[in-house]
Design a protein around this nucleic acid. Structure first.
Lengths: 207, 207, 207, 207
DNA sequence: CATGAATGAGGCTTCATTCAT
DNA sequence: GATGAATGAAGCCTCATTCAT
């Protein structure tokens, strides 16, 4: 856990933000269109043309706001990152105990991925588009986990162990069980499955 | 768990197999070159030209043995799939108890991924190249797990719980901890990290 | 004769139309270049590269206005179709009697083919490029004929017989005599030949 | 009608015929396979590989018997040419009068084309593969016609006119009415249509 | 700010043909 | 005679990006 999240932080230099009201709208339209298109087709199959079409602007307009295809992708990831964390945070805060908090956290993450199928696909592609960006995403995600886990350990609410290992294990569980989802074809997974996952986590964490 | 691995099995019809000794060598060379190139650059950045150059054959030769870029990728995945399973199987069979077996299994998988850094990257891209292939890979992987877990549960060697959930949790842990690896830049991860993972698994499984 | 020309109408969806003056010029240049190249080399021997070179634009520009090689060919056929019909129409309208009209019509078609040697070759290739397009061309051509022939029959200007058969016979005559043309190597065919054809038609039509 | 058929005769030099019994069979198999494949896919879409596969021989074997793709096509056309003429000849010879003979001849040609849909397609492609070969085909065909027409004219059985023009008119009628056929989707054309064609010819020829 | 025309490098793929065995 | 591996030229097409208006 020596590295800080800064180390992984993506390069955002040279990005110009829109100034006028109209410009902000166009910018937002493009970002939204990008989320849709990347989410549907994946980064590599998606084309800038399609993003502009979906946003209702000309091709040239795209380059007024973004340096290129990769740039809009990066900005999108960052945007989504904040979104996800906020969403999970909300789910967690109402929890009674630390253990319950973690269990709910991972399930919340799991559910979020399922609900926002786009995010899953976009995130997945991030790894092959910009490894650092991808790691930054999870690492910064992990940091939050790790801090909470450390506190909980200090209070004896969960057992002592390497918190970073724990964090990655938990994220892995969330992601992979989300991957299994499509096999259930839109329906919820069987209760027994969800129970199994929850069970697994509680066992591994409880003091 | 109703689905059988057949359901995800990729379509391999219409492929020309090499008939002579020389042909087989060329075929192998191409497959090996593909593993190298896809592993280094990722599927999307890799080009067929580079694969042929690396294999020391003309561009046209490629299409004697493979239908196209995607085809060789598919064949490669299948090839690696057998490889990994064999490798893990060997690691496992020598284990004393079932619990130890599983713990070693996951660590073996984890180590395999680290050793064959290529595989990790290739597998990762599989998801965006052919979702079915990707799922087939893990699903068929899970099947092996599930069977062993069920047996172990029956004998009371590990605790009762949904075996499928367990399998996906374990695979998720393996994959994500492998992802963390590059942060250590080629060195082995700290012992405490590995201990943490092993710990996590043992606790979650033990009866 | 139940089918309408609509049935054979080629699919033109998804084509980008030029919006500015400059774009329209480029579009026209490409179409003209295509007529030249296809006419000289035939569809299969012609290459997109040559069309773009002839039009004085980059290869990529081609795909701004056309979906591909086949697409520009289709559009070309349609364009020529209107051209021919207009040309023949003009030739016909000044005719005194219906019988003379038809005779002149077929000869006009015949002359048009000779003058636009390209058209003959292009049309010929249409059959192997897109059978429906080819049929559409002649079918829609036949429809015009048939209508006129029916009117003429009703007025007793030409004899009663199956108008569709008549139309296809006439088109066959036009096309095949045009085919014979190159044997005369650029010179006009002997008067006796032309007379023979005219004769043939008049006899077959006159009441 | 100054040219002789020799002028159009295709270049057949350098063709080696099979010597052994086995060789002859392979040769025939290849030629038959070529007829099938060219007939189904057209010359340009057909591939040498497919011909060899259909013939059940290796790719290299093809070049033992033929100089190349175009060569086998040429030989095929010549082969078919004899076939067609023989077939039409048979149909004609039993005719009572010269006029009937011609009428039956053209209808026979028409029917032959319909029955051997392959021939139609192959012949069609000949024009774009080797113009001379194509013209040779029809010209040599025309010669037969012309001779018979001249005799008939001499005897006053049909009216006096340019025999070459007549011949090409007749061939055009046959080919184009054959083209109309697919619109009837495998069924025979209406009697009225066939009557119309026959009528047309008789009118044009009778003294 | 916005447009849309134009670019051209680079990728994938086909296939007629050659040649060593 | 027959095989089948190997070739490589040539073609089609995509698309991120630039630029003049």
């Amino acid at each position: 856990m020596a590295e800080t999240s800064v180390r992984y932080f993506p390069d955002l230099s040279g990005i110009t933000l829109p100034k006028t009201r109209k410009g902000k709208i166009t910018f937002q339209n493009l970002l939204q269109a990008a989320e849709d298109v990347f989410g549907e087709k994946g980064y590599h199959e998606a084309s800038v043309v399609e993003v502009t079409m979906r946003a209702g602007v000309a091709q040239g307009t795209f380059y007024v706001y973004f340096k290129g295809k990769k740039d809009i992708f990066t900005q999108l990831i960052i945007h989504l990152h904040h979104d996800v964390r906020k969403s999970i945070q909300q789910e967690i805060t109402s929890s009674a105990s630390r253990l319950e908090e973690e269990t709910r956290g991972i399930v919340a993450f799991f559910l979020y991925l399922h609900k926002h199928a786009n995010l899953y696909k976009i995130l997945r592609d991030a790894e092959s588009v910009d490894e650092n960006l991808y790691r930054w995403y999870y690492h910064s995600f992990a940091e939050g986990y790790i801090k909470r886990l450390q506190k909980a350990m200090a209070k004896g609410e969960i057992r002592q162990t390497d918190p970073e290992a724990l964090a990655y294990c938990l994220m892995g569980i969330g992601t992979f069980t989300a991957m299994r989802w499509p096999g259930w074809e839109g329906r919820m997974p069987p209760e027994s499955f969800l129970d199994g996952v929850r069970d697994f986590i509680i066992r591994a964490l409880s003091a």
